[in-house]
Design a protein around this nucleic acid. Structure first.
Lengths: 338, 338
DNA sequence: CTGAAAGCGCTAACAC
DNA sequence: GTGTTAGCGCTTTCAG
């Protein structure tokens, strides 16, 4: 069991055994073309035999490339970010990259120090769902100055020229609201999220759609949730309005689920008396007493596409400005808006 | 914005500027004691001025330590593992470690290749929620042979002498079952999970507790869920038994939530006619139509303690065998077992 | 096709 | 206290 640690095999060892130079072995390992067929197979044989594994730290230092990319998210527990992480990982792994994940805890200073750590580790690129204040792009300039490519995800900063990949939040807002209109609702309340890109985009889409339909609602029809857990209270307040809303659009699923809870507790029927829709298609939406209609934002796809753009700009020249990628939302209609 | 990439400052640059040796600067950076007070402050000043950041790749190569630990989980989307990851991260970050996360997709070969990658990256240690077949410990021996410390989490392999940290699954099974007994239930059905450590531990605890209470139930009272999403079907089958169960214990929350859905759809009342309990305390348990009672397994704490043991065995000598750490479960009683 | 020379940026060990 | 000598294990560059 606990045998004495084995010193890993090095290029040098193989070279010595075979009476060739370290260079030759290195070339075989990296699949360079300019190696004689016979030499190559002798080397390959020995490599298998000794189960040689390149030391990536040494390789990274010499090649000035780590094949590591950094991912910074505000909170891994949020299934949205976990799914992005999964999408990123699935995209980069086959290309030989690994990913180090950092949590900023939704705090801009943590984020900055994570960025510094990652840069010190010489990551080849960065993916950031940023917790910087809107408009605050000093951190991004710093990364730029280092010449390390990065892609912003989920939270957009139009002041930075960095590529951006995220859900199309305005489209989400429009889609949810339109769906509710199509179902015959007219007094559509909204529980809005924090004033970051996603929350305000969805709110904007909601307002536009109502306006386009010629519907005017009192300001009280929009509640603001600080937090994922405040859907319940927000909905409780909305239920006291007269006339009562006939629909509630929650800026994400937890909020909408909280709203559903408040509604059902008040003895009001979903979807007959109030329809409810959320955003995110979290995996339990379907398990709620009334399965929750939702807008799917294809989180995995956000991770995949962001990773894709990043990888390309790593290999490539100075990055040409990439147009923001807005992922199209998909409506998942379930019982709560039947 | 897109200014030309700046070459990072090196120890050498500072040394040259100040007419001291690279070593001296290195010592200041690492806070070694043996540096003159004045020299030190001159160096420090220049470090700030130039915003010097050590190159961790070079440092890792020279010091033969990366301060990176690898975490391998079957699925990041599972909030249980995401929470573990968060706990790990929170524990190691302040100590200067970073974490690279790999997904095995619940596949033993993926896991093995991830382990190899991580070893090639010279990680200082490994945390593994393993997808190896029960009893299959060849992979672990390989890691041992390399002398890299690792800690097993969630899935236990008693054949390996590696430290283990996980929930106390038998205690979980006992606690859930006992709670149901205390509530007056007698025909307690169980939806069991896959035959890995957690699933079978919970099943065992369930059986023991029933036996201790002198209750004998037909085999049909235990259904097996392949998958998190099969709670619904499993419960549907259980509901057809006569006499009908008066309680269902799901091996995790998604399963229990699926069961709740089936029960409510059948027009049966929770908790009056059937009580339901799950495991995991996922964050939405509370949002279900009937808030779900559950056993909390303190996932973050699993990550923290595992990371703790790992870090200690990195610094330390050959590891002394560590007793398995079983985290005590906590009962969260909600409406579904009132 | 093969290999020698020259590092990558940093640290360990030991002199001075 | 400070600096020297040697690398860590690999790749780049460029001769042969």
């Amino acid at each position: 069991m606990a045998q004495t640690p084995t010193t890993p095999v090095r290029l040098k060892d193989i070279a010595r055994d075979l009476n060739v130079s370290v260079m030759t072995v290195s070339k075989v390992v990296r699949n360079c073309a300019d190696v004689g067929a016979e030499t190559r197979s002798r080397v390959m044989a020995r490599i298998k035999e000794l189960n040689y594994q390149p030391n990536w730290v040494a390789r990274s230092l010499a090649a000035r490339r780590t094949f590591i990319i950094g991912l910074i998210v505000p909170d891994l527990m949020h299934s949205f970010f976990a799914e992005i992480a999964k999408g990123v990982s699935a995209t980069i792994r086959p290309l030989g990259y690994d990913m180090v994940i950092c949590n900023s805890e939704e705090n801009s200073e943590n984020e900055a120090s994570e960025v510094d750590r990652l840069l010190a580790r010489q990551v080849d690129g960065l993916l950031i769902a940023s917790a910087q204040q809107p408009g605050e792009t000093e951190l991004f300039s710093r990364i730029d100055a280092r010449g390390v490519p990065f892609v912003l995800i989920d939270r957009r900063f139009s002041e930075s020229s960095a590529p951006y990949v995220g859900a199309d939040d305005e489209a989400i807002g429009r889609m949810a609201t339109k769906h509710l209109l199509d179902r015959g609702c007219r007094r559509i309340a909204h529980i809005a999220g924090p004033q970051l890109a996603p929350g305000s985009g969805r709110l904007k889409g909601y307002r536009e759609t109502l306006a386009a339909a010629g519907i005017k609602l009192p300001d009280a029809c929009v509640e603001h949730a600080k937090d994922d857990d405040t859907g319940y209270e927000a909905a409780s307040r909305l239920l006291k309005l007269t006339p009562r809303p006939d629909a509630i659009f929650g800026y994400n699923d937890p909020t909408a689920a909280g709203a559903m809870k408040a509604i059902l507790e008040a003895g009001i029927k979903i979807p007959e008396e109030i329809k409810v829709i959320g955003v995110g298609n979290v995996h339990y939406s379907d398990l709620l007493r009334v399965p929750l209609s939702t807008i799917d934002q294809s989180s995995a796809s956000i991770g995949e596409q962001a990773a894709d753009i990043l990888i390309k700009s790593i290999g490539g020249k100075r990055r040409r400005t990439v147009k923001p990628v807005l992922i199209d939302p998909v409506l998942i209609a379930r019982e709560s808006t039947r």
